[in-house]
Simulated assay, not measured.
Amino acid sequence: MAYEFKIERTASPKAKESLQGSVFGTRFTDHMFILDYDKGQGWHDGRIVPYQPIMLDPAAKVFHYGQTIFEGLKAYLTADGRVLLFRPRSNIKRMNLSNIRMSIPTLDEELFLEALRQLLVVERDWVPSEEGTSLYVRPFVIATQATLGVSPSHQYKFMIILSPVGAYYSEGVNPVSIYVESGYVRAVPGGVGEAKTAGNYAAGLQAQEEATAKGYSQVLWLDGVERKYIEEVGSMNVFFVIGDKVVTPVLNGSILHGITRDSVLQMLKHWGYEVEERQLSMQEVADAHRSGELKEAFGTGTAAVISPIGELYWQEKAMTLNGGRTGELSQRLYDELTGLQRGEKEDPFGWTVELKG
């Protein structure tokens, strides 16, 4: 099925400046994609328009009941001038899982991919070429029906905006320090923890502020029932190298199904590593650190890709990992994954998709 979208080009293109030293997600391209939904009509009226504010009724359900979901993926410029996307079909599949959990109508996969393709064709010159940069893609859905009744909306907007970005953390690929949160709870199985919905992130902001005040980059969440089992970092899934094994928390209904997480798991198995997806307590990690069995740890996510962990703070004690340096496996994964994403290394998994048009 061919999808035709109206295109309105901006009359005032923005200047494209260097991303060196810029804060992640603070610059946006000239255009965005919008698609409307009305009950009984379905998704309709797809269009590419100049990047602009949107007008919503103050009673729009997104403001009152948090009915919204989002995704994140990246486009990369290769040395020979091609633009590559990384596993975009995985993003729309996960987006629809979030839609279902939040009672939002699902989107046709091919419509999503074609909307993304056409927007990227219009904005191709915005894909940055500086080392370590990419064009961050943020698709999202908001409930727009203007009524205060507690029920799923009958109207929605699906949008895609684009942001040229550098490193997510100011540390880049250097190790970050992580505060283990034992008081606040972000999500529990049966809730919406595995959906990429705004409330999950709002629930973590207070803990993040407190961790930042203590000098830590991110929060590591423990399970919401016993407060002992590791779940994920606020913006990343997490892996630990314990002895000769790589261990990551098993997906349990309150942990995001990370696409980079899945990619790392496949890469590790491809390389012959022994990998365990299982319940992992913070006490086990502390014991492994004490015995010298904890070799390194790292986070994985679209924004950060691979982020080595140099320090964990738990129960009033700081644990330095690998001497506070980037671990060998973290570095290898970062180099291989970013090299694959940029078309510099062979892609044995068929993950990269070249932009056509």
Rank of each mutant, 00 (worst) to 15 (best):
residue 2 A to N: 14
residue 5 F to P: 04
residue 5 F to M: 07
residue 6 K to S: 15
residue 6 K to A: 13
residue 7 I to C: 10
residue 12 S to G: 09
residue 18 S to F: 04
residue 18 S to Y: 01
residue 22 S to E: 14
residue 26 T to E: 01
residue 32 M to G: 06
residue 36 D to H: 15
residue 39 K to T: 12
residue 40 G to L: 05
residue 44 H to V: 10
residue 47 R to Q: 14
residue 47 R to G: 04
residue 48 I to Y: 03
residue 51 Y to A: 11
residue 52 Q to T: 13
residue 53 P to F: 09
residue 56 L to Q: 08
residue 57 D to Q: 13
residue 60 A to C: 10
residue 62 V to Q: 03
residue 63 F to V: 07
residue 65 Y to F: 14
residue 66 G to C: 07
residue 69 I to P: 04
residue 71 E to C: 12
residue 72 G to R: 05
residue 72 G to W: 01
residue 73 L to W: 00
residue 76 Y to M: 00
residue 77 L to G: 00
residue 80 D to N: 15
residue 87 R to M: 11
residue 91 N to E: 05
residue 93 K to E: 14
residue 94 R to G: 10
residue 94 R to H: 10
residue 99 N to A: 15
residue 107 L to T: 09
residue 107 L to C: 10
residue 107 L to P: 12
residue 108 D to G: 09
residue 108 D to E: 15
residue 111 L to S: 07
residue 114 E to K: 15
residue 116 L to Q: 09
residue 116 L to H: 08
residue 121 V to N: 01
residue 122 V to P: 10
residue 123 E to F: 03
residue 125 D to W: 01
residue 126 W to S: 00
residue 127 V to G: 01
residue 127 V to M: 02
residue 128 P to G: 02
residue 130 E to H: 00
residue 135 L to M: 05
residue 135 L to P: 01
residue 138 R to M: 12
residue 141 V to I: 15
residue 143 A to R: 03
residue 144 T to A: 06
residue 145 Q to Y: 08
residue 147 T to S: 15
residue 150 V to G: 04
residue 150 V to F: 07
residue 153 S to G: 04
residue 160 I to Q: 04
residue 160 I to T: 02
residue 160 I to Y: 03
residue 164 P to V: 00
residue 165 V to C: 08
residue 170 S to D: 11
residue 170 S to W: 07
residue 171 E to L: 06
residue 172 G to Q: 09
residue 174 N to Q: 14
residue 175 P to S: 12
residue 179 Y to V: 05
residue 185 V to A: 09
residue 187 A to F: 04
residue 189 P to E: 07
residue 196 K to S: 07
residue 196 K to V: 06
residue 204 G to H: 02
residue 205 L to F: 12
residue 207 A to K: 02
residue 216 Y to I: 12
residue 220 L to I: 05
residue 221 W to E: 02
residue 223 D to A: 03
residue 227 R to P: 00
residue 232 E to D: 07
residue 236 M to G: 01
residue 240 F to S: 03
residue 240 F to L: 06
residue 241 V to W: 02
residue 241 V to N: 06
residue 243 G to I: 12
residue 245 K to Q: 14
residue 246 V to F: 02
residue 247 V to Q: 00
residue 248 T to N: 00
residue 251 L to P: 09
residue 254 S to N: 10
residue 257 H to C: 10
residue 259 I to G: 05
residue 268 L to F: 08
residue 272 G to M: 03
residue 273 Y to D: 06
residue 282 M to R: 03
residue 284 E to P: 06
residue 286 A to K: 12
residue 287 D to I: 11
residue 302 T to H: 02
residue 303 A to H: 02
residue 306 I to N: 02
residue 306 I to L: 01
residue 307 S to L: 00
residue 309 I to F: 03
residue 310 G to P: 09
residue 312 L to N: 07
residue 315 Q to K: 15
residue 316 E to T: 11
residue 321 L to D: 01
residue 323 G to T: 07
residue 326 T to M: 03
residue 328 E to N: 10
residue 330 S to I: 01
residue 331 Q to E: 13
residue 335 D to N: 12
residue 336 E to T: 15
residue 337 L to Y: 04
residue 338 T to V: 05
residue 339 G to V: 11
residue 340 L to N: 05
residue 341 Q to L: 00
residue 343 G to D: 07
residue 343 G to Q: 06
residue 344 E to K: 15
residue 344 E to Q: 14
residue 345 K to H: 13
residue 346 E to F: 08
residue 348 P to N: 07
residue 348 P to D: 11
residue 348 P to T: 05
residue 351 W to K: 09
residue 352 T to I: 15
residue 354 E to V: 13
residue 357 G to I: 11
residue 357 G to V: 12
